[in-house]
Write a protein that binds this DNA or RNA. Structure first.
Lengths: 146, 146
DNA sequence: CAAATTAGTCAGAGTCTCTGACTTGAGTCA
DNA sequence: TGACTCAAGTCAGAGACTCTGACTAATTTG
Protein backbone atom coordinates (compact mmCIF):
# COMPACT_ATOMS: atom_id res chain seq x y z
CA UNK A 1 0.00 0.00 0.00
CA UNK A 2 2.59 2.52 1.03
CA UNK A 3 4.75 1.46 -1.86
CA UNK A 4 2.41 2.53 -4.63
CA UNK A 5 1.11 5.47 -2.79
CA UNK A 6 3.74 7.75 -1.34
CA UNK A 7 5.44 7.61 1.99
CA UNK A 8 5.42 4.94 4.64
CA UNK A 9 2.40 5.50 6.89
CA UNK A 10 4.61 5.42 9.96
CA UNK A 11 6.66 8.35 8.76
CA UNK A 12 3.48 10.09 7.67
CA UNK A 13 2.24 9.95 11.24
CA UNK A 14 5.56 10.79 12.79
CA UNK A 15 6.33 13.91 10.79
CA UNK A 16 3.40 16.04 12.00
CA UNK A 17 3.74 14.62 15.50
CA UNK A 18 7.32 15.73 15.64
CA UNK A 19 6.51 19.13 14.18
CA UNK A 20 3.82 19.72 16.80
CA UNK A 21 6.02 18.61 19.65
CA UNK A 22 8.82 20.88 18.49
CA UNK A 23 6.49 23.87 18.29
CA UNK A 24 5.10 23.29 21.75
CA UNK A 25 8.53 22.77 23.18
CA UNK A 26 9.92 25.92 21.63
CA UNK A 27 6.99 27.99 22.90
CA UNK A 28 7.37 26.63 26.41
CA UNK A 29 11.08 27.40 26.42
CA UNK A 30 10.35 30.93 25.25
CA UNK A 31 7.81 31.38 28.03
CA UNK A 32 10.46 30.46 30.56
CA UNK A 33 9.65 26.79 31.00
CA UNK A 34 13.04 25.61 29.88
CA UNK A 35 13.86 23.40 32.82
CA UNK A 36 12.30 20.20 31.63
CA UNK A 37 12.88 17.73 28.82
CA UNK A 38 10.64 16.10 26.20
CA UNK A 39 10.78 12.80 28.04
CA UNK A 40 9.61 14.46 31.23
CA UNK A 41 6.84 16.21 29.33
CA UNK A 42 5.62 12.97 27.83
CA UNK A 43 5.17 11.54 31.31
CA UNK A 44 3.70 14.71 32.79
CA UNK A 45 1.12 14.80 30.03
CA UNK A 46 -0.38 11.56 31.29
CA UNK A 47 -0.99 12.62 34.87
CA UNK A 48 -4.71 12.66 35.59
CA UNK A 49 -6.54 15.52 37.31
CA UNK A 50 -6.56 13.70 40.65
CA UNK A 51 -3.09 12.27 40.38
CA UNK A 52 -1.86 9.04 38.88
CA UNK A 53 0.24 6.22 40.24
CA UNK A 54 3.75 5.76 38.98
CA UNK A 55 2.98 2.31 37.66
CA UNK A 56 0.01 3.57 35.67
CA UNK A 57 2.05 6.42 34.30
CA UNK A 58 4.70 3.95 33.19
CA UNK A 59 2.12 1.69 31.54
CA UNK A 60 0.50 4.53 29.65
CA UNK A 61 3.77 5.97 28.44
CA UNK A 62 5.03 2.48 27.65
CA UNK A 63 8.18 2.80 29.70
CA UNK A 64 9.37 0.84 32.73
CA UNK A 65 8.41 2.01 36.17
CA UNK A 66 12.08 2.61 36.88
CA UNK A 67 12.28 5.03 33.99
CA UNK A 68 9.05 6.68 35.04
CA UNK A 69 10.41 7.02 38.57
CA UNK A 70 13.59 8.59 37.24
CA UNK A 71 11.63 11.17 35.26
CA UNK A 72 9.18 11.93 38.06
CA UNK A 73 12.09 12.46 40.45
CA UNK A 74 13.34 15.21 38.20
CA UNK A 75 9.90 16.74 37.75
CA UNK A 76 9.54 16.77 41.51
CA UNK A 77 12.90 18.48 42.00
CA UNK A 78 12.01 21.21 39.53
CA UNK A 79 8.59 21.66 41.10
CA UNK A 80 6.32 20.47 38.31
CA UNK A 81 4.79 17.59 40.25
CA UNK A 82 4.30 16.43 43.82
CA UNK A 83 3.97 12.95 45.23
CA UNK A 84 1.14 12.50 47.70
CA UNK A 85 0.32 9.37 49.64
CA UNK A 86 -2.45 7.31 48.11
CA UNK A 87 -5.15 7.05 50.77
CA UNK A 88 -6.32 3.71 49.45
CA UNK A 89 -2.96 1.94 49.34
CA UNK A 90 -0.02 2.56 51.64
CA UNK A 91 2.47 1.18 49.13
CA UNK A 92 1.46 3.66 46.47
CA UNK A 93 1.80 7.37 45.98
CA UNK A 94 -0.11 9.60 43.63
CA UNK A 95 1.90 11.75 41.29
CA UNK A 96 0.07 15.09 41.07
CA UNK A 97 0.47 18.06 38.79
CA UNK A 98 1.70 21.16 40.67
CA UNK A 99 0.67 24.74 39.94
CA UNK A 100 3.82 25.43 37.95
CA UNK A 101 2.84 22.62 35.59
CA UNK A 102 -0.73 23.86 35.21
CA UNK A 103 0.64 27.21 34.12
CA UNK A 104 2.92 25.52 31.61
CA UNK A 105 0.01 23.45 30.39
CA UNK A 106 -1.95 26.60 29.62
CA UNK A 107 0.90 27.79 27.43
CA UNK A 108 1.19 24.42 25.76
CA UNK A 109 -2.54 24.17 25.10
CA UNK A 110 -2.52 27.57 23.46
CA UNK A 111 0.23 26.51 21.08
CA UNK A 112 -1.47 23.24 20.28
CA UNK A 113 -4.63 25.14 19.44
CA UNK A 114 -2.65 27.52 17.25
CA UNK A 115 -0.96 24.69 15.36
CA UNK A 116 -4.24 22.84 14.95
CA UNK A 117 -5.69 26.01 13.52
CA UNK A 118 -2.86 26.20 11.00
CA UNK A 119 -3.41 22.60 10.04
CA UNK A 120 -7.09 23.22 9.64
CA UNK A 121 -6.40 26.19 7.40
CA UNK A 122 -4.24 23.97 5.24
CA UNK A 123 -6.53 20.95 5.12
CA UNK A 124 -9.93 22.55 5.40
CA UNK A 125 -12.29 22.01 8.29
CA UNK A 126 -13.87 18.91 6.86
CA UNK A 127 -10.64 17.05 6.22
CA UNK A 128 -9.30 18.09 9.61
CA UNK A 129 -12.38 16.75 11.33
CA UNK A 130 -12.12 13.46 9.43
CA UNK A 131 -8.44 13.22 10.27
CA UNK A 132 -9.11 13.48 13.97
CA UNK A 133 -11.97 11.02 13.69
CA UNK A 134 -9.86 8.48 11.86
CA UNK A 135 -7.01 8.81 14.35
CA UNK A 136 -9.43 8.47 17.24
CA UNK A 137 -10.82 5.29 15.72
CA UNK A 138 -7.34 3.98 15.11
CA UNK A 139 -6.63 4.41 18.76
CA UNK A 140 -9.18 1.70 19.47
CA UNK A 141 -6.90 -0.89 17.93
CA UNK A 142 -3.48 0.64 18.54
CA UNK A 143 -3.55 2.04 22.07
CA UNK A 144 -2.44 -0.72 24.42
CA UNK A 145 -3.69 1.39 27.29
CA UNK A 146 -7.12 2.52 26.10
CA UNK B 1 -10.03 22.22 19.82
CA UNK B 2 -8.49 19.18 21.40
CA UNK B 3 -10.03 20.13 24.70
CA UNK B 4 -13.65 19.81 23.66
CA UNK B 5 -13.03 16.99 21.34
CA UNK B 6 -11.07 14.12 22.83
CA UNK B 7 -7.37 13.61 22.96
CA UNK B 8 -4.53 15.93 22.11
CA UNK B 9 -3.80 15.65 18.40
CA UNK B 10 -0.12 15.00 19.10
CA UNK B 11 -0.91 11.93 21.14
CA UNK B 12 -3.44 10.87 18.54
CA UNK B 13 -0.69 10.83 15.94
CA UNK B 14 1.87 9.27 18.19
CA UNK B 15 -0.16 6.30 19.38
CA UNK B 16 -0.59 4.59 16.00
CA UNK B 17 2.95 5.53 15.00
CA UNK B 18 4.29 3.81 18.04
CA UNK B 19 2.08 0.78 17.54
CA UNK B 20 3.27 0.38 13.97
CA UNK B 21 6.91 0.76 14.88
CA UNK B 22 6.57 -1.81 17.64
CA UNK B 23 4.96 -4.31 15.29
CA UNK B 24 7.65 -3.88 12.66
CA UNK B 25 10.37 -4.13 15.23
CA UNK B 26 8.98 -7.29 16.77
CA UNK B 27 8.62 -8.93 13.36
CA UNK B 28 12.17 -8.05 12.41
CA UNK B 29 13.50 -9.46 15.66
CA UNK B 30 11.55 -12.65 15.10
CA UNK B 31 12.99 -12.95 11.60
CA UNK B 32 16.48 -12.81 13.06
CA UNK B 33 17.19 -9.12 12.55
CA UNK B 34 17.72 -8.44 16.21
CA UNK B 35 21.08 -6.75 16.00
CA UNK B 36 19.95 -3.20 15.44
CA UNK B 37 18.07 -0.59 17.39
CA UNK B 38 15.11 1.70 16.64
CA UNK B 39 17.41 4.70 16.40
CA UNK B 40 19.55 2.91 13.83
CA UNK B 41 16.45 1.91 11.91
CA UNK B 42 15.18 5.47 11.78
CA UNK B 43 18.41 6.54 10.11
CA UNK B 44 18.62 3.53 7.82
CA UNK B 45 15.10 4.20 6.60
CA UNK B 46 16.25 7.49 5.10
CA UNK B 47 19.07 6.16 2.96
CA UNK B 48 18.26 6.68 -0.71
CA UNK B 49 18.63 4.02 -3.39
CA UNK B 50 21.97 5.42 -4.56
CA UNK B 51 23.33 6.24 -1.17
CA UNK B 52 23.00 9.36 0.95
CA UNK B 53 25.53 11.60 2.60
CA UNK B 54 25.83 11.57 6.35
CA UNK B 55 24.93 15.23 6.59
CA UNK B 56 21.75 14.74 4.57
CA UNK B 57 20.81 11.75 6.64
CA UNK B 58 21.25 13.83 9.78
CA UNK B 59 19.15 16.68 8.39
CA UNK B 60 16.31 14.39 7.35
CA UNK B 61 16.24 12.53 10.64
CA UNK B 62 16.61 15.83 12.51
CA UNK B 63 19.64 14.73 14.47
CA UNK B 64 23.17 16.10 14.53
CA UNK B 65 25.72 14.75 12.12
CA UNK B 66 27.67 13.44 15.09
CA UNK B 67 24.72 11.36 16.18
CA UNK B 68 24.14 10.18 12.64
CA UNK B 69 27.81 9.22 12.40
CA UNK B 70 27.56 7.28 15.63
CA UNK B 71 24.56 5.32 14.38
CA UNK B 72 26.01 4.69 10.93
CA UNK B 73 29.21 3.39 12.53
CA UNK B 74 27.18 0.74 14.26
CA UNK B 75 25.16 -0.11 11.16
CA UNK B 76 28.43 -0.51 9.29
CA UNK B 77 29.88 -2.82 11.93
CA UNK B 78 26.82 -5.06 11.82
CA UNK B 79 26.83 -5.07 8.03
CA UNK B 80 23.63 -3.19 7.26
CA UNK B 81 25.30 -0.33 5.43
CA UNK B 82 28.55 0.49 3.66
CA UNK B 83 30.31 3.79 3.17
CA UNK B 84 31.53 4.45 -0.36
CA UNK B 85 33.52 7.44 -1.52
CA UNK B 86 31.43 10.12 -3.15
CA UNK B 87 32.86 10.55 -6.66
CA UNK B 88 31.78 14.17 -6.79
CA UNK B 89 33.30 15.32 -3.50
CA UNK B 90 36.38 13.92 -1.83
CA UNK B 91 35.31 15.13 1.59
CA UNK B 92 32.08 13.18 1.49
CA UNK B 93 31.15 9.54 1.57
CA UNK B 94 27.87 7.96 0.53
CA UNK B 95 26.15 5.78 3.05
CA UNK B 96 24.65 2.86 1.10
CA UNK B 97 22.22 0.13 2.06
CA UNK B 98 23.85 -3.33 2.03
CA UNK B 99 22.14 -6.56 0.97
CA UNK B 100 21.44 -7.56 4.57
CA UNK B 101 19.42 -4.38 4.99
CA UNK B 102 17.45 -4.90 1.78
CA UNK B 103 16.42 -8.30 3.08
CA UNK B 104 15.33 -6.76 6.37
CA UNK B 105 13.44 -4.11 4.48
CA UNK B 106 11.43 -6.76 2.66
CA UNK B 107 10.37 -8.17 6.01
CA UNK B 108 9.54 -4.73 7.36
CA UNK B 109 7.52 -3.79 4.28
CA UNK B 110 5.46 -6.93 4.60
CA UNK B 111 4.58 -6.12 8.19
CA UNK B 112 3.73 -2.52 7.36
CA UNK B 113 1.40 -3.77 4.63
CA UNK B 114 -0.20 -6.18 7.08
CA UNK B 115 -0.75 -3.51 9.70
CA UNK B 116 -2.11 -1.08 7.13
CA UNK B 117 -4.52 -3.79 6.06
CA UNK B 118 -5.70 -4.18 9.65
CA UNK B 119 -6.17 -0.45 9.96
CA UNK B 120 -8.10 -0.39 6.73
CA UNK B 121 -10.36 -3.16 7.96
CA UNK B 122 -11.07 -1.15 11.06
CA UNK B 123 -11.57 2.21 9.38
CA UNK B 124 -12.95 1.19 6.05
CA UNK B 125 -11.19 1.82 2.75
CA UNK B 126 -12.58 5.28 2.29
CA UNK B 127 -11.55 6.61 5.68
CA UNK B 128 -8.14 5.00 5.34
CA UNK B 129 -7.59 6.66 2.01
CA UNK B 130 -8.64 10.02 3.38
CA UNK B 131 -6.37 9.55 6.38
CA UNK B 132 -3.34 9.01 4.19
CA UNK B 133 -4.32 11.94 2.00
CA UNK B 134 -4.70 14.27 4.95
CA UNK B 135 -1.37 13.18 6.43
CA UNK B 136 0.33 13.61 3.09
CA UNK B 137 -1.04 17.13 2.83
CA UNK B 138 0.02 17.87 6.36
CA UNK B 139 3.53 16.94 5.42
CA UNK B 140 3.62 19.94 3.13
CA UNK B 141 3.59 22.26 6.12
CA UNK B 142 5.23 20.11 8.77
CA UNK B 143 8.16 18.37 7.08
CA UNK B 144 11.20 20.61 7.42
CA UNK B 145 12.96 18.45 4.88
CA UNK B 146 10.36 18.00 2.13
C1' DC C 1 -2.37 -16.96 58.01
C1' DA C 2 0.89 -18.26 54.02
C1' DA C 3 1.57 -17.48 49.27
C1' DA C 4 1.33 -14.81 45.42
C1' DT C 5 0.87 -10.31 43.56
C1' DT C 6 1.53 -5.33 43.22
C1' DA C 7 3.83 -0.53 44.16
C1' DG C 8 7.84 1.35 44.19
C1' DT C 9 13.11 1.82 44.86
C1' DC C 10 18.19 0.89 44.28
C1' DA C 11 22.17 -0.26 41.49
C1' DG C 12 24.38 -0.80 37.28
C1' DA C 13 24.82 -0.75 32.45
C1' DG C 14 23.95 0.38 27.58
C1' DT C 15 22.19 3.58 24.15
C1' DC C 16 21.10 8.01 22.19
C1' DT C 17 21.91 12.65 21.82
C1' DC C 18 24.09 16.96 22.24
C1' DT C 19 27.93 20.92 22.26
C1' DG C 20 32.41 22.33 21.07
C1' DA C 21 36.68 21.93 18.73
C1' DC C 22 39.03 20.21 14.90
C1' DT C 23 40.76 18.40 9.94
C1' DT C 24 40.27 18.21 5.24
C1' DG C 25 38.35 19.39 0.82
C1' DA C 26 35.47 22.64 -2.18
C1' DG C 27 33.91 27.05 -3.78
C1' DT C 28 34.56 32.21 -4.30
C1' DC C 29 36.62 36.25 -5.69
C1' DA C 30 40.04 39.71 -6.32
C1' DT D 1 46.74 31.87 -8.24
C1' DG D 2 46.07 32.59 -3.36
C1' DA D 3 43.48 33.89 0.71
C1' DC D 4 39.13 33.39 2.56
C1' DT D 5 34.89 31.18 3.57
C1' DC D 6 31.97 27.34 3.69
C1' DA D 7 30.75 22.36 3.84
C1' DA D 8 31.63 17.17 5.13
C1' DG D 9 32.90 14.60 8.52
C1' DT D 10 35.46 13.12 12.93
C1' DC D 11 37.03 13.26 17.88
C1' DA D 12 36.23 14.03 22.75
C1' DG D 13 33.40 14.68 26.49
C1' DA D 14 29.16 15.03 28.80
C1' DG D 15 24.24 14.63 29.81
C1' DA D 16 19.79 12.28 29.22
C1' DC D 17 16.92 8.20 28.60
C1' DT D 18 16.04 3.59 29.03
C1' DC D 19 16.57 -1.06 30.33
C1' DT D 20 17.37 -5.58 33.34
C1' DG D 21 17.81 -7.58 37.73
C1' DA D 22 17.29 -7.65 42.55
C1' DC D 23 15.08 -5.90 46.43
C1' DT D 24 11.48 -4.02 50.32
C1' DA D 25 7.03 -3.27 51.81
C1' DA D 26 2.02 -3.47 51.46
C1' DT D 27 -2.06 -5.83 49.56
C1' DT D 28 -4.83 -9.54 47.94
C1' DT D 29 -6.07 -14.33 47.65
C1' DG D 30 -7.02 -19.02 48.87
Amino acid sequence: MAAENGLNTGLLLFIPYRALEDRVFAALAEAGYDDFTPAQARVMQRIGPHGTRLTDLAAQAQITKQTAGFLVDQLEKTGYVRRLPDPTDKRARLVCVAEKAWAAKRVADAVVAEVEQEWQSHLGARRMKHLREALTMLREITDPWA
